[in-house]
Write a protein that binds this DNA or RNA. Structure first.
Lengths: 118, 118
DNA sequence: CTGGTCTTTCCCTATTTCGTGAACTATTCT
DNA sequence: AGAATAGTTCACGAAATAGGGAAAGACCAG
């Protein structure tokens, strides 16, 4: 609305919204799982998850915008892009989960009682 | 496709996929936050999150399909639907997160070593 | 310089989803 | 019975997103 918008930087654009939206896709989540083991190249990921390079590239872009992965050029071959996991913004998701679970714990107690009474 | 589809029960249809997809929406996540405090009626939620009843109803349907919330009719007024949180399928998300984080911890260790060696 | 490799971007179409407004079901109140 | 309430479902069009394939950009090897 106002002309003097805060204009959040692309790197800072990662909210819980974008994090969850990024992880909501099976291919992206699979990629994250693979990257959890060790950093990998884009093409390696494309083959591993079974998608074409263009599709993989776009999914990696989403993960990058969500600040879930980090892109880097290896010194030996500048064509290659090596992707690795960033833990930082995942912590935000974790804290949100923990907060929500705090509320559940109360209801969990009630649920347990309910189940035991059956 | 085939007429004899496995037809997964609506209650059992909750995978991590659907869980994350459900939580990816701001309105739905806000609803979950509100339900974490205490169970609420559908209309109450609609007003709280600032959406029209039809929209709220649909979002609640998504949360219900994801097995994140539970619907129940109160004894005093059968028109009302009271929604409450279900913790069960969220545990799946938590375990997935923990698994992914297990992979990160190794990389964090390696990173620390790398930084200390410089 | 030329060919081959790794990855991304662009154009296009198909599918999904969101929100609005009207209509509908079920239930309560007078 | 008749009107009002609580909530859901069914139209519709608008917007975002996913996938495929062609082509471009950047780079290494001969």
């Amino acid at each position: 609305m106002t002309s003097a918008a805060p204009s959040p930087a692309a790197t800072d654009d990662a909210t819980i919204d974008t994090t969850l939206a990024a992880l909501a896709d099976p291919i992206r989540r699979r990629s994250v799982e693979l990257l959890a083991e060790r950093p990998r190249r884009a093409g390696e990921l494309a083959i591993a998850v079974g998608v074409s390079p263009p599709v993989m590239s776009r999914h990696l872009r989403v993960l990058r915008d969500a600040a879930l992965v980090d892109e880097e050029h290896p010194p030996f071959d500048a064509r290659v892009r090596i992707y690795s996991l960033r833990a930082a913004h995942m912590a935000e998701l974790r804290s949100w989960l923990a907060e929500a679970e705090a509320g559940w714990s109360e209801q969990l107690t009630a649920l347990k009682e309910h189940l035991e009474r059956r």
